[in-house]
């Protein structure tokens, strides 16, 4: 196997970038589904900004992932099937109501910010460059999600109830955030990405303190869902991809 920069193999770099890139692409798609449905026009702007930031990150990461075998961002986005996507199950979960969307954002963006912050000084320069830009965006996404979780948790009886339901719905998918793939473990050994176990505690602390402040709590059951990083997805992803890919695939070899 060819050694990449800093001893990270091309295959491992590709897997890591693909996992991250797919997270961003799929979550960006979900956020874009909110277009014209946001609870207020100002929030329409915010959701579109989140979607655009994540789409930009996805493009950089997929471009990096495709370098090894000469595939560009569109070939990776449009010509892989469900089983080849490497994103977390959390990000493919449907939008539900605004409480579900903001909870999903909180759980993911908090994770992403911690990873990016670590990777800025990691040994893989291209990942570090993407992280340096991404960390600023992720920080804003976390901030936005935190403001809303606070307000929904402590707002009305209805919003509180919806927040509790959103947490129950999404909590099972948080286990997977901290399960390293073999590629990830090797990349972590090379110092390109953090060991996921080092992220878990700060993540949990950040989420828990916010929830307590918001009159909410971490659900009392363990998380159990996982498999996204290995291509084992929920039924939702197939529909998402069918919509995203159909036009591109209907015109093979066309350029847009």
């Amino acid at each position: 196997m060819t050694a990449g920069v800093a001893g990270l193999s091309v295959v491992d770099l590709r897997e890591v970038a693909l996992g991250f890139g797919d997270d961003c692409l799929v979550l960006s798609h979900r956020l874009a589904e909110w277009t014209t449905h946001a609870p207020e026009l100002e929030e329409e702007m915010a959701l579109a900004n989140l979607a655009l930031d994540l789409l930009g990150q996805a493009r950089s990461l997929l471009t990096l992932a495709g370098e090894a075998d000469g595939r560009d961002e569109d070939q990776l986005a449009y010509w892989r099937d469900d089983r080849d996507f490497r994103n977390l199950l959390l990000v493919e979960q449907p939008n539900g109501d605004f409480a579900v969307t903001m909870t999903r954002q909180l759980l993911f963006s908090t994770f992403q910010e911690l990873l990016y912050r670590w990777m800025v000084t990691g040994t893989e320069p291209r990942l570090a460059a993407i992280a340096a830009k991404g960390v600023m965006e992720a920080r804003y996404h976390v901030e936005h999600a935190r403001l809303w979780v606070q307000r929904l948790g402590g707002g009305t009886e209805e919003s509180h109830r919806r927040m509790c339901r959103a947490l129950d719905l999404l909590w099972p998918y948080t286990e997977e955030l901290f399960e390293p793939t073999e590629s990830w473990s090797r990349a972590a050994d090379q110092g390109a990405v953090p060991p996921l176990s080092s992220i878990e505690e700060p993540w949990r602390h950040s989420i828990e303190s916010l929830l307590v402040d918001s009159g909410l709590e971490i659900p009392g059951f363990p998380a159990w869902q996982s498999g996204g990083r290995l291509g084992r997805h929920s039924e939702h992803l197939g529909h998402l991809l069918a919509e995203m890919q159909h036009l591109h695939r209907s015109h093979p070899n066309a350029s847009w």
Binding site: H37, A38, P39, E40, F98, L152, S159, R162
Partner: peptide, 9 residues
Amino acid sequence: DGAWVREAA
């Protein structure tokens, strides 16, 4: 659909 969100805030 957004009414409960605006109200909560």
